[in-house]
Design a protein around this nucleic acid. Structure first.
Lengths: 357, 357
DNA sequence: CTGAAAGCGCTTACAG
DNA sequence: CTGAAAGCGCTTACAG
């Protein structure tokens, strides 16, 4: 007692000070009720006075409480955008095992909205304590979150935000400003009168994502503000049809010889890059998004001028961690977390993936 | 026993399987010796077979082991480079309290080598379990680390690496390549024949840091590789003497009217920026390093063309975490961790500090 | 509404 | 060289 050199105050200390047992203190700390007005007030007073900080390690060890999260995200192959996102999820999961947290992946086909629909059907029958949701199909995410609200399950958005929803947090970039950054990178090195090709992937039944639209708006807004006088030409490209893309682009370049710039608003700029390299159109500046393997190679090769990136690993990591902190410690994250917009050139890309977190 | 649904195997389980007590298993796990050959072999075999993973939470709770780290770094005012670094240290510390880790800051004057010398004298009398060292005064760091080696104290370098030392890890950028990135950003928008001002801070007895020299070498190497034909002019500037700097630069610009670019290799480009803004020399492109407050303001204002940054918070954070993981879990980090080299323009700087980690 | 007691998985004296 | 027992700070039935 006399040589008690505890610097931290524990539940037993609180109990002693308030003249009750540890169980009663525990009830107050967790608002479990069943405590007399009098004890409640007294304990709360002590708690406040000593600025009690629970030892989360001990709590986790004692409670044995397990948390299951789900990550609702597009399926991916190695080297693709969502693979990086998943790496962030995995890293967070590795840290969170300490708190008995596990993350289940639920993947859909980002080019097929019905796959998302049926995934939601599956999720309706699953039990979980929190969710990370990639909001590619915003119209369907919104009603689903109403159900999660009703179930009292917290969820975090990534990719693009839907402010109308009751999300615990959002992690992603400002798509509009990421569009402006791409414009700056392209326009910096372009004659204001040059024309620009905008590569656009066409696939079954997708009207273009939120993100695509917002990036394009930011891009156009920058051009307008900087006296751009050229024209934008939209090229309808296909994911897996090089020959067809070649014909489309050949014609476009033939008809518009003043094209000197190119851009895509999703992560598929390697398609345009492949074309430019094949046709040896060195004079065309190309800017795109995301450091996926194929884009990175084209940047290093000097075919792509610049890439704009959004730290997918950080998005995955922080989304999971936000959920953990909320569930385990009751600590609420900031609602809107606009991540940095990264600029990659040939010179700095070798180091980009060295701080995956 | 029958409905034992433990998915994780604990020390008692190991003990039971090996037919010994938990204390003996503990001895083997921690190589404390005093175990018979026979038991040692048997227990190790079981450990291997079940792929035993200790519960670090329980370990930390039970051992009550405390770790003291020190961070040896330059003193700073708010908004300066090392303030960001310290923020990373603080964030890591907040996470590491779980493992009874605390970090003590030991600061020196980065413009005064004798202050570093006397700091080392202090450190010789201190007890600690690990150190993060900013290697600005490399010549003095090296002999000091021999002493740490002798004491068996692990240390991590930040800022610039000293490969000759026995460091646990290094976190920082490749200064050479960061120099090339600055050159690219400047040169991209410059006539190959234009002249460039290199701002250089002169202060008592500093011959220029490692980092400064390496960045300059990378910068020059890029220029050479890209047919730069202009000249570099070195301007000796002072930290706190605007009037003097003005005179120096006025003369330089008067004598060299073809100067169209400017660069600094440390975080003081706001000095040159202030001059360019005051004299309304809008035509001069300026590139510098580090997103400190004053630089960021000049970038947002359009006076600075681009900043090259090195994630000081991430350096601080990861340096501390590397030490924690090593001490607590015995997990060794990669030795050389070259951090990403970030590029900041007016358009993406607003979001840069949103993912401090 | 309340408290005594066991237990989370590991470590640490202590006695042999 | 070995093991029984207490304890880290918290939670959880359980009995009152």
């Amino acid at each position: 007692m006399s040589d008690n050199e505890h610097t931290t105050v524990r539940i037993v200390d609180i109990a002693r000070m308030a003249g009750v047992s540890v169980a009663t203190v525990d009830r107050v700390i967790h608002n479990r009720g069943k405590v007399s007005e009098e004890n409640l007030a007294r304990i709360n007073e002590v708690l406040r006075r000593v600025d009690y900080r629970p030892n989360l390690i001990a709590r986790s060890l004692a409670s044995g409480r397990r948390y299951t999260l789900c990550a609702v995200m597009p399926r991916f192959d190695p080297g693709e955008y969502w693979a990086d996102f998943e790496a962030g999820i995995a890293r967070a999961e590795a840290e969170a095992v300490r708190y008995n947290v596990t993350v289940r992946r639920f993947c859909f086909d980002q080019y097929d909205r019905s796959s998302f629909e049926s995934l939601l059907e599956t999720l309706r029958r699953e039990e979980f304590d929190g969710a990370v949701i990639a909001t590619l199909f915003a119209e369907m995410v919104e009603p689903f979150t109403r159900e999660l609200d009703a179930r009292g399950v917290p969820y975090v958005f990534v990719d693009s935000d839907i402010p109308a929803c009751n999300r615990l947090a959002y992690f992603g970039t400002s798509s509009f400003d990421a569009g402006a950054v791409a414009a700056r990178l392209l326009f910096d090195r372009l004659d204001p009168g040059a024309d620009i090709v905008v590569g656009r992937i066409v696939h079954r039944g997708d009207a273009g994502s939120n993100q695509w639209r917002n990036r394009e708006a930011g891009f156009r807004s920058y051009l307008e503000a900087h006296a751009f006088r050229g024209r934008l030409h939209y090229a309808a490209l296909r994911l897996d049809d090089e020959a067809c893309n070649g014909r489309v682009l050949d014609e476009m370049f033939r008809e518009n010889p003043s094209i000197a710039g190119a851009v895509t608003f999703n992560s598929t700029c390697y398609i345009l890059a492949g074309y430019l390299a094949a046709r040896r159109r060195d004079g065309v500046r190309l800017v795109g998004y995301d450091v996926i393997r194929r884009n990175g190679e084209m940047l290093s090769a000097g075919v792509v001028t610049a890439l704009v990136a959004q730290r997918p690993e950080a998005q995955g990591y922080r989304a999971v961690m936000a959920l953990c902190e909320w569930l385990v410690e009751g600590r609420a994250p900031s609602k809107v977390n606009n991540m940095p917009i990264d600029i990659l050139l040939k010179e700095n890309i070798p180091y980009y993936k060295n701080n995956i977190i």
